[in-house]
Each structure stands twice: as C-alpha cells, then as structure tokens.
C-alpha cells in the first residue's frame, strides 16, 4: 500500500497537499473513485486518502516544530477499529518521539476533527516505517566494516558499484534484545531495527547479527546466542 508514504510526504503541507493526496489515492482506487473522490465512506471501509491526510494534520498539530527537526516522526496512520466506537470514523496515528524514546498512538475522531485519545509509553515498539528502513540502510552503508561488506556483495551481484540505499531491496524489522544477546543492550530503550537486504541476484547477505540503533544513529553487532 502506498498510503503510509503519501502521509509522510504530506504531513503538515497544507491544502495543496490535500488536493494532491486525493489525486494520488483516487488513482489507486480506480476511475469510479476518481470521479467522486468525496464519496462518503462506509463505517468499515479503509480510510480514504483525504481522511489519512486530515488525520495526519490533526494528530501532528502540536508536534510540527519537533517533526521538522526530526525529533518526532509520524510513522503511519491505521484505521481505528475499536468495537466501542464502531460507528465512528477514527484513525490511529503512530508516532515515535526519538528525543524521549517514546511511542505514541493518537486516536483522531474524523467527524469531531480532534484527538480523542492518546496512549504513550516506553518499551513497546511499532513496526518501522518505510522512511525509518531507508534511514537504517543509510546508516548501515556508512558503517566501514558492515557497510563495506554489503557494498562488496552488491558489486559482485550487480556487476557495478552500489550508488545508494535505494538500490537495495529493504525490509526493516524491529529488534528487541533477547536475554542471550550481548552488544545491543541499548535497544531495551532505544528504537532499533534489523535489516533484510535483497541484492539484485535475489540473495540476502546475512545481516542478522547487525542491529541499527536509530535513536543513537549507531551500528551494533550482536554477540552470543
């Protein structure tokens, strides 16, 4: 789905962006939706592009400044499907506060146009967003030892040097330290990910011992079992 990406590009960008998102999403939904982009969604329909943009704006209204500096990041918007509010159009905004290492979920009621609930805490980690995956890959490539190994494997597979992280097929997964692991203790409180990296010859170099600490912008190597 492309919506997560659209949200990140558009968050806080205003009316032009809203119109743009309608265009993009109606393109995905086919000609029917394109002709009537303002069709009222049914209660269990996925959020429309317009609803996602609006939920992003509302959820991040008090976070704009810290979002610009990268301290806080809006990861994605998920439709709220709490049984207790089944007839309401609601959106959950997944937000990560890198400065405080806090995970925040803000629930936006779209009819009321406001945040109706906020849950926040440390420890629980939401799945990484696409932007976080790309940032992790850039950090990994900048690392002399591990990045060098990936670059060499890429050059062997592709027959040409790696230009940027976007040459790689990426999948980021949250890393949570296990009792037997050494070397990644910081990840008990930091936001850490592991990357699965696909090379052009459809192979995956073993990256399972590498952890990217996004909070500290550091590469960690796992030891022990």
């Amino acid at each position: 789905m492309g919506w997560g990406r659209i949200v990140m590009v558009l968050a806080g960008a205003g009316a032009m962006a809203l119109a743009g998102s309608l265009f993009l999403v109606s393109g995905e939904q086919g000609p029917q939706a394109a002709r009537s982009p303002l069709r009222t969604p049914s209660p269990a329909d996925p959020l429309t592009g317009e609803e996602i943009s609006r939920a992003s704006e509302i959820a991040s209204a008090t976070l704009r400044r810290r979002m610009t500096t990268g301290q806080v990041e809006l990861l994605y918007i998920e439709r709220g499907d709490d049984k207790a509010a089944e007839d309401r159009r609601r959106a959950d905004a997944y937000i990560y506060d890198y400065a405080a290492n806090r995970f925040i979920v803000r629930t936006v009621d779209l009819a009321e146009g406001r945040v109706v609930a906020e849950r926040a805490g440390r420890g629980a980690q939401p799945p990484p967003s696409r932007a976080e995956g790309e940032r992790a890959a850039e950090l990994l490539l900048a690392d002399r030892a591990h990045g060098g190994r990936i670059r060499a494997a890429y050059a062997r597979a592709a027959g040409r040097p790696l230009r940027s992280a976007s040459d790689l097929g990426l999948r980021a997964l949250v890393y949570t330290p296990r009792p037997a692991h050494r070397g990644a203790g910081a990840c008990a409180t930091h936001r850490c990910v592991r990357l699965l990296v696909r090379l052009p010859d459809a192979t995956w170099p073993d990256t399972t011992r590498i952890v990217v600490d996004l909070s500290a912008e550091k590469i960690l190597t796992l030891e022990g079992r």
């Binding site: 997944y94 849950r119 926040a120 805490g121 420890g123 980690q125 949250v174």
Partner: peptide, 10 residues
Amino acid sequence: SANPAPGCAA
C-alpha cells in the same frame, strides 16, 4: 507478540 500498542501487554 511484539504488540504495537503503548500501555498494553506485549
């Protein structure tokens, strides 16, 4: 597992 919800069991 890895339940993505603050303030909820994991």
